[in-house]
Amino acid sequence: MAQKTYAGITIDVNEEGYFTNPSQWTREIALEVAKELGITLTDQHYAILEFLRNRHNSGEALSIRSINHSGIIDVKTFYQLFPGAPLKKATKIAGIPKPASCI
């Protein structure tokens, strides 16, 4: 299993860089993962990361549509916060698996 060091802590990741153990995640680690992806985290970013983590922990599937139901931001803002591939980037920063959904 691959490992990476963020904020001085060694994290277990898969070959694509996604956390294999979401409990290793901290806000400081997220900051460094985001920096790697060229994103500077704000409170709004953190709010949506928490939403994604909670949703993952409760076993619910992640889709782009679920962001609209988050009550935090709409999908358009989500695309602006995590430009390019938002769900893939956001889940990587949130320390949870890459979504397996097609929507």
């Binding site: 889709s63 782009i64 679920s66 709409d74 999908v75 989500f78 695309y79 929507i103």
Partner: peptide, 18 residues
């Protein structure tokens, strides 16, 4: 059931992402 939205909402999602 699979969280696939109605057409109008799908167009919303697509255009929201550019």
């Amino acid at each position: 059931k699979l969280d696939i939205p109605p057409v109008s909402e799908f167009l919303d999602l697509i255009t929201a992402g550019g």
